[in-house]
Amino acid sequence: MSAAIVNAYVGAFFEVALAHDAVSAVEDDIFRLARAFESNEALRSSLTDAGLPAERRQKIIEQLLAGKAHNVTVQLVSLLVGTGQVALLPKIADALVKRASSEKQLEVAEVRTAVALTDAQQQRIADALTKATGKRVNLKVVVDPSVIGGVIATVGDEVIDDTVRTRLDQVKSRL
């Protein structure tokens, strides 16, 4: 049931974004919002709080994304909040990114770092991953402080982990 709903929303979002010629912007905005939704407890509880009127929750998301996301993104996420399906946002975002990448014959490359990357660094990482995997990648960067340092990249089923967290985990295991 959940997968069917996700697929329905993904199809609708993609078609709307495509109609507005904003697929890249929308999928990038939704991807970043989904990661924030996952990591931010306050945001998650506010948007999923059934005690809050849908209009109030939609207002929150509109204020949050105002000026930071494409207008189509704001409208689509507001719709999702209004229908009470915002809990599916991470799955919808992942599926939408995958769908958009697939349309462009790209492989999604999720990169997690402890600090924000410059555009140049993102481009260099995308080039390096393309070279390493032999696939053109659609780079998605997630700033994740739990990484501590370094980078972990996931391209399809392949994971390239060069993070300080993993090294510390190995030290802990040895201890």
Partner: peptide
Amino acid sequence: QQDLVDGFIAKVGASR
């Protein structure tokens, strides 16, 4: 942090 990112790029870029 930047050195670590650069190190990752260099390592991945050199992997093939």
